[in-house]
Design a protein around this nucleic acid. Structure first.
Lengths: 177, 177
DNA sequence: GTCTATATTCTGATAGAC
DNA sequence: GTCTATCAGAATATAGAC
């Protein structure tokens, strides 16, 4: 995970991975049939864990669910920079079959947010003309945090989360009380 | 450009590039001293062109400038998918010196948007508590379009641009007229 | 389950003929 | 300015001893 995130799948050899974990290259093949399966397993496990962790109580207030989602996404991605980086950057190095599996999991994660936005619309708590577009925009915006945020800077992750919650509310048309 | 975008810098050999342009591998070294310089030149040219193309009339109305920036960013990135993809994905394959150059150009592009937001704040036309964070959020949101938008889908690029302009206005606190 | 050794192919880059 | 040929090393993956 660390090597793929730092240098990229194609640039990391099986020998480097073996050296990192303290065995010879041949020994790795007791754990994975090949390099591709290793990449796929890392990405698959990450997406499964993400889907298992995302909070989603359909009975709660839509705005509360949206705020929870924003905080969850920022925090979860911040805590797993390598997994996130790989899952966005190494998609093109998956075989077509493996790519389809990961894409399906990603779509299911997006659907969690889109359901929140749809319920918010139905309840009249927010106003956005296209929940699918808004979903993609919000996720891109939130995921961007992990590309530049570093601990110890001008703002804490809690500050950042507050700013993004402001911006998300504005973007999806939550009207002031 | 096409090969790096599709398969990644590390995965593409000089022989593949040579075959793509119809020469033998050795001939490439009449045009670039090495593979790293080739990547750097592609990214550098792209960032220079982006900075030269971005509209920025400091005397215009801040909201008009913001709308122009949003439309420009979406259109420019949509028209150059390979360049955009490389410039975001291959940063880690640059040498530290080359990375610093590209990062500086990227920061200068971000500064164009941040100046607009600052002027909008000063003019009382928008309200966002942190123009730097808003800049990063808006650019991440807009750049995301090029990862999923495909011609011929449910919405045209003009439709998308209109939706994003709505969302950006909300995100940076443009109050309804 | 790890090791050494190896098959086979590919890598970035260079030399020198033309 | 392109070609062929080549260097020196690295790549994935496998075989077989232990």
């Amino acid at each position: 995970m660390k090597l793929f995130a730092r240098e990229g799948y194609a640039a990391v050899s099986m020998r480097r991975i073996a050296a990192e974990v303290g065995v010879q290259a041949g020994a790795l093949y007791n754990y994975t049939p090949d390099k591709q399966s290793l990449l796929f397993t890392l990405m698959h496990d990450h997406m499964q864990a993400l889907l298992a962790a995302v909070p989603g109580d359909p009975k709660a207030d839509p705005l509360a669910r949206l705020e929870t989602f924003v905080a969850f996404h920022i925090r979860y991605h911040h805590d797993r920079p390598d997994e996130v980086f790989i899952s966005y950057m190494e998609l093109r190095n998956l075989t077509p079959e493996n790519f389809a599996v990961i894409e399906d999991l990603r779509r299911r994660y997006e659907d969690v947010l889109e359901s929140i936005l749809r319920d918010g619309m139905a309840a009249g708590r927010l106003h956005t003309p296209d929940t699918k577009i808004a979903t993609l925009a919000v996720i891109a915006m939130l995921t961007g945090v992990s590309t530049w945020f570093r601990e110890g800077g001008r703002l804490s992750l809690e500050d950042i989360t507050a700013r993004y919650w402001d911006m998300v509310r504005g973007a999806v048309g939550v009207r002031a009380q």
